[in-house]
């Protein structure tokens, strides 16, 4: 739990609205955890340190407005890197996210990188005022909606390029040509990022799509989304949030991180027929009147051998085993030898 006002500062109003809220004894509004990054930033802001690396695997809750966005409780696994050089830390975060997915067998995962910093730079450079309108259009990759917003034709041309081109570092080169400049230092940043990603051996799995924008207000540098072919929703995402650290009082701090949706990963693994051990069903041990003790004895023996089972009075079941004078396999109707029970 945390104070609503503080969380809202970090995540922005849209996400904060979807959080579960309760009242503290003194009337202050609290929220249940809907994501983790804001709380980490707040905790670290009160005890500033040098470079810090943290991770978490935890459950979160939020209201779901729409009828198609899944569960109200969900699990997230994430990591945060506080401090360090921007391009170096971002490359490390992206490489870590991909290697985590590799390690659980989702090695086809890819990442698309966008940049709020670059986006803001273009908006300011051309003095575009309808910030919200442009964000909405860019998020939806709607060229037609962009055309409906009044702005400098060069700005429009750049935004259309930003949402319709997806590729490697050449996207940034072309953009800097269009803006006659180094894009406020962004060009150098992206060049270094891709050089380091190459050193991590994952540059080929990372693409630039400048239409990538995420819900959270706290991002101010790059934003990235992780996805896998055949799974319709992203596996996770992350980005740079120095601005939020500032919000919480750490002027000079830099921070980057990501979260992976554990639920989406499970869905992805299931879709490639990964079998979870927990799916093995426990064996039913049924008894006729007078044989309950014998059934319990059998269950104890099986459990000691690691076999899950439960004991219940026989009620006409067709699966499991029946304990009376001997032990009967209910699915085959055959008598089982007690010595062979370990093999059940």
């Amino acid at each position: 739990m945390d104070f609503f006002d503080i969380i809202k500062e970090g995540t922005g109003e849209g996400f904060a609205d979807s959080l579960f809220k309760v009242q503290d004894s003194d009337g202050k509004l609290l929220t249940l955890r809907g994501e983790v990054t804001t709380q980490i930033a707040r905790m670290l802001a009160s005890r500033a340190r040098d470079e810090t690396r943290l991770f978490y695997i935890t459950n979160c809750v939020k209201y779901i407005d729409s009828d198609a966005s899944g569960q109200r409780e969900y699990w997230q696994a994430g990591a945060e890197l506080i401090g360090g050089d921007a391009a170096s830390s971002d490359a490390e975060a992206i490489a870590l996210a991909l290697s985590i997915l590799d390690s659980i067998g989702l090695n086809g995962a890819q990442i698309d990188v966008g940049s709020v910093g670059l986006f803001r730079y273009v908006l300011n450079y051309f003095g575009v005022s309808d910030f919200e309108g442009v964000i909405r259009a860019v998020k939806r990759k709607s060229v037609d909606d962009l055309r409906g917003i009044s702005m400098n034709p060069r700005a429009l041309e750049m935004f259309i390029y930003m949402i319709s081109r997806r590729g490697g570092i050449e996207v940034i080169d072309k953009l800097s040509e269009m803006a006659d400049g180094d894009l406020g230092g962004q060009k150098g940043y992206f060049r270094k990022l891709f050089r380091l990603l190459d050193a991590y051996g994952c540059a080929g799995r990372v693409k630039i799509d400048l239409g990538t924008l995420r819900e959270m207000k706290y991002y101010n540098g790059i934003i990235f989304e992780i996805f896998l072919g055949g799974i319709g929703t992203p596996l996770g995402g992350g980005g740079r949030y120095d601005a939020m650290m500032k919000e919480f009082g750490l002027e000079e701090s830099r921070a980057t991180g990501f979260a992976i949706s554990v639920d989406t990963c499970i869905r992805a693994l299931e879709s490639c027929n990964f079998s979870f051990n927990s799916k093995e069903r426990p064996l039913g041990i049924f008894f006729l009147e007078g044989y309950e003790e014998a059934a319990i004895a059998l269950a104890r023996r099986l459990r000691a051998n690691g076999k899950g089972c439960y004991v219940s009075a026989y009620n006409g079941e067709r699966e499991g085993v029946l304990v009376s004078e001997g032990v009967l396999d209910l699915s085959t109707g055959k008598e089982l030898q007690l010595e062979g029970m370990g093999g059940l």
């Binding site: 890819q110 698309d112 319709g232 929703t233």
Partner: peptide, 14 residues
């Protein structure tokens, strides 16, 4: 009428 596209398909089946 609009043409809509899944965000992941847009990238994996570009």
């Amino acid at each position: 009428a609009r043409l809509i596209c899944n965000k992941v398909s847009y990238k994996t089946k570009y």
